[in-house]
Design a protein around this nucleic acid. Structure first.
Lengths: 124, 124
DNA sequence: CTGTATCCCACGCGATACTG
DNA sequence: CAGTATCGCGTGGGATACAG
């Protein structure tokens, strides 16, 4: 009843929300979140689990997530340097929305690909 | 096991999914979706409802959403040109995931802003 | 092992002007 | 009214090299 034809217009997307989503749903965040939800990971663990990411992007994304309180950076030992990244309680709350989103993507991908083909054929 | 959450590792984020989310959660799509979920809109209606968007970006976003089968472009009359944009059934299915996401953002925004302040102070 | 530092390019997006 | 056409800029992100 709430999803079909509920009172519309409940959610306006404000600039701060937009910015937050950009920081938290960017190119690599979802993959990182996915890994850290299963277990704490070292930096190079993440690199192995997400082979396509570069050092630079991984560092940047982790910093951004850390700044937003989504992940936690834990220094394990200083010589040689060892660092572990963990999901925070706040980070865990992000899992459900993301799952719903990915579920949607998985469910409707075929339909979307059909739409794309139709569009690409029609508009030439 | 615990609070009715799914077994881990259910959702790997693949490249096609990533691309889809980029096309559907980009800077202006959520605002457009929001408007079109309430009523069909003409091009300039949307410009009025979303004052910050430029013509170019609005056109580009609408085309992208149309290609993915999220919105529908309806030619109302040809002279003078009149066009109406409508949400599709597929587009409506996107509303729930997006609402969950925006709900999350609204709920946790205070906590996130605290995290940011702490981070910005600690790391200088 | 865990990062920084550069360089560089693609592209998302804004600004502005023009068109059927 | 509903777009296209151009130009330009900021920045996300890859490649590579270096550092504590």
């Amino acid at each position: 009843m709430d999803t079909a034809d509920a009172p519309e217009g409940e959610l306006k997307v404000s600039a701060p929300h937009r910015e937050l989503l950009d920081q938290v749903l960017d190119k690599w965040s979802l993959s990182i979140l996915n890994e850290l939800c299963e277990r704490p990971c070292r930096f190079n663990d993440l690199r192995r689990c997400i082979p396509a990411v570069t050092q630079k992007s991984l560092t940047a994304t982790l910093r951004r997530l850390e700044r937003n309180g989504i992940v936690e950076r834990v220094l394990l030992s200083s010589r040689p340097v060892a660092v572990e990244y963990r999901i925070t309680p706040l980070g865990k709350t992000l899992r459900h929305p993301v799952d719903v989103l990915l579920d949607w993507a998985a469910t409707h991908m075929p339909e979307i690909q059909r739409a794309r083909r139709t569009f690409d054929l029609t508009e030439t």
